[in-house]
């Protein structure tokens, strides 16, 4: 019998295919595990409604359950809606190391909050586009080191 903690630990290690440095546990995409009779149900939640990574994540979680010998399925839940607050502090630290500025502030608050350059640390940066290489990111440029970088935007 595999414990719920062991299941959560194992499936929590599944990586986000778009930002592979983050696991679904870091992201807060992994919601939990419950039992329905003999079946284990792992719940996950999308960051954005149309996030194309969800299909891959669901598949990877199923494979992990299989490798644990657990009879289970994956359920996608929308509520309560995911926000960037669900990202763990260690997840945010991993993002900086990977060259992506972590989320700051709350949601679509359209003030110009400074986003620090993840490469040189300068606060002198400019937003180039609210939309970046994936749904969850915006595109920025550092005025100090001139490098472009992604920012994981607040939702």
């Amino acid at each position: 019998m595999v414990t719920d903690t062991a299941i959560l630990e194992a499936v929590g290690e599944v990586a986000d295919p778009e930002v592979p440095v983050l696991t679904i546990a870091d992201l807060g995409v992994l919601r939990g595990v419950r039992h329905e009779g003999d079946e284990v149900v792992v719940t996950i939640t999308p960051t954005y409604s149309g996030c194309p990574a969800m299909d891959v994540i669901r598949h990877e979680v199923e494979l992990t359950l299989n490798s644990l010998g657990v009879d289970g399925r994956v359920e996608t839940v929308l509520s309560p809606a995911w926000t960037t607050d669900w990202m763990s502090e260690s997840g945010k630290a991993k993002l900086v190391e990977y060259g992506i500025a972590p989320p700051t502030g709350r949601g679509a608050v359209f003030l110009s909050l400074t986003v620090r350059c993840p490469l040189c640390g300068s606060p002198d940066t400019t937003e180039l586009s609210r939309f970046g290489s994936t749904s969850c990111k915006s595109l920025w440029r550092c005025n100090a080191c001139r490098e472009p970088f992604d920012h994981f935007k607040a939702l």
Partner: peptide, 16 residues
């Protein structure tokens, strides 16, 4: 940048 922005906006709509 606009290609990317509209791609993302369309993806949100498709997800909904």
């Amino acid at each position: 940048e606009e290609d990317v922005a509209l791609g993302n906006i369309g993806l949100d709509q498709l997800g909904q």
